[in-house]
Amino acid sequence: MLEIKNLYAGINGVSILKGVDLTVNPGEVHAIMGPNGSGKSTLAKVIAGHPDYKVEQGTMEYEVNLKKLDLAAMEPEIRAREGIFLAFQYPVEIPGVNNSVFLRAAFNEICRHQGAEEMDPIEFDQYLRQKMKLLEMDEKFIDRPVNVDFSGGEKKRNEILQMAILAPRLALLDETDSGLDVDSMKIVANGVNKLKSKNNAIVLITHYQRLLNYIVPDFVHVLSDGKIIKSGGKELAIKVETQGYDWLI
């Protein structure tokens, strides 16, 4: 699904990723851990296409529906329409833009691109309410401006709601667990688990092993100074949790 080879990328002329190799197949859950500043969030942003980050070297090949796509050559919205989703570490507040209007606009853009039928407001409203139940979200969020005056936890839930609505092939969750209390984390993790299938893949970026108790990864990678220095199974996350990163670096 995603094959990243020898990826170098940076911002303002400073390299942050220095030769990342990562292969993600459908049905897999990958966790990326690593110390602060190791480039975890940058990797997510580069895959999603943040314009501030420049790819300096290497390739990102994304395979979907038997098409092989060169991600670096695609606008962020095209990546999204091809099924890549980034749940933000710090979701952006958008005053004046109603949550359901925004979600329907996004949903229909993606449908149009994929040749699926668009939904009218009434159909979409039902679809939205059903997905909100999955995340135990209050209906008041339907008509509120996107993320405005949402608590930290509500914002994170709203991210996963968007993931549920847009049904991506490859979901990148950037520290979705940060700022969540245990109960909220269980709800979010439960939502993510329900969205998991053999056709899609999830990449979790996290500092802590805690989330991985709820969303169990098939692979754990440790990123340090822009490179993946160690890959393993879920036991690697437990080892990092108890021993830190020093033994790896």
Binding site: E77, V97, E109, H113
Partner: peptide
């Protein structure tokens, strides 16, 4: 943020201005 949800840049701009 809007682009990562599949929304074109010019449409995103309009949404933000309208907001």
């Amino acid at each position: 943020y809007l682009q990562t949800r599949g929304i074109r840049k010019d449409f995103a701009t309009r949404m933000l201005l309208c907001g």
